[in-house]
Simulated assay, not measured.
Amino acid sequence: MIEREQWCEGCGVTLQTENPEEQGYVPASALEREHIICRRCYRIRHYNELAPVEQDPSATLRLLEQIAQADALVVQVIDLFDISGSWIPGIHRHIGNNPLLILGNKVDLFPKSIKHQRLKEWVQGAAKDLGVKPVDVVLTSAAKGTRIDVVAEAIEKFRDGRDVFVIGTANAGKSTFINRLLKEFGDEGEEAVTTSPYPGTTLDAISIPLGDGKHIIDMPGVVRKDRMSEWVDPKELKQITPDGEIKPKVYQLSEGQTLFFGGLARIDFVEGKRQSFICYLANGLYIHRTKLEKATEIWERHRGELLSPPKNPDSLPKMVRHSFVINATMKEDIVISGLGWISVGSEKAKVDVWAPEGVRVELRSAVI
């Protein structure tokens, strides 16, 4: 048996040596090491092994409740590629009176022509709509290290000698961000926190000491089931997760045409003048255009083969329809949470979007 205070430095889970099939397992011999990580983290780091982890969303939210009782700076990491899907619902209730710094991550995914100030103002507007008043919004790419010095300065300024809680939804990039901070400003060595493309990698709070006796605490990601990323098989997740600058794909569609996004979703142009549908999705995701009158037949015949991911369509919930009216008074984005968005609005239109039941599909003012 091992003591409670021994926990995995990679994901924060309590270590145990009894059951290899349970979370937190380590061989007894591993307890002699200076830095201990569980078998799951070891396999992720050394073999790129991915596996879904059953998590209790309510347990994660209960962990967040301690933040309101602390005197600390709260850094919320949001995924700029999926802003609505990476907000923590009711964030103001969890942080109490503590200051909130919003970190807009994955700015490197946007075309270089997009002004950072425009993105920042867009995030500020989204926060205002949700009743959140951050002390500041800073844009960065944790993976690339973009503007990480600006982020560090903002944290030091607003923490004012206090602890720092880093929070966010699963897969927003919290752990990647902390590792980037340690790489730039800490001791060199192996990454402190395990990261992977699959949501739910961090299982418990991880506390990392700062130089003044305070700590930066990486909290487990809040799981949201309304994003496509939570439903895709781990082996297929990279196909829908952008890893570099998005190359928009422009389709000139006429009324009665359909676009398939792999076998994950589809958009039907039901009514309107010929116009552009600009797709902002992972560059490697297969997009197939066809006639609406043939769409159902093609979907049923080729989903899981030509139309993939997913290879196994039965792994997803049933498809449901979301209908939108485009008024063409301004450019708008049709957002499929966890997958990307389609920019529309040059002409009036009626559009149907099909996505797995429970996945958020919404219309917003255009970000680009």
Rank of each mutant, 00 (worst) to 15 (best):
K331A: 12
V137Q: 06
L130Y: 02
I216V: 15
I208A: 04
E121G: 06
Q117W: 09
N179C: 06
H215T: 11
E49C: 06
E357L: 13
E190F: 08
V166C: 02
D71K: 15
I208W: 05
L182P: 01
P134F: 10
L253P: 00
L292E: 05
E153P: 03
F260I: 09
M319Q: 14
L316D: 01
G186R: 05
T241G: 03
L363C: 01
L103S: 01
T241S: 11
T296Q: 15
N327M: 13
G221N: 06
I217K: 02
I67Y: 08
F158D: 06
F260G: 05
D71Y: 10
L307I: 04
N179S: 07
P134T: 12
E32L: 14
K273P: 04
K348H: 11
E21I: 05
E9I: 13
L64D: 01
I67S: 04
M219E: 03
L210R: 09
I216E: 02
I37V: 14
H35M: 10
D149R: 15
E332P: 02
R360I: 04
E49Q: 12
K128S: 15
M219P: 01
L253I: 12
E9Q: 12
Q66F: 10
N98L: 07
Q69D: 07
L50C: 10
Q16K: 08
A172D: 01
F277C: 08
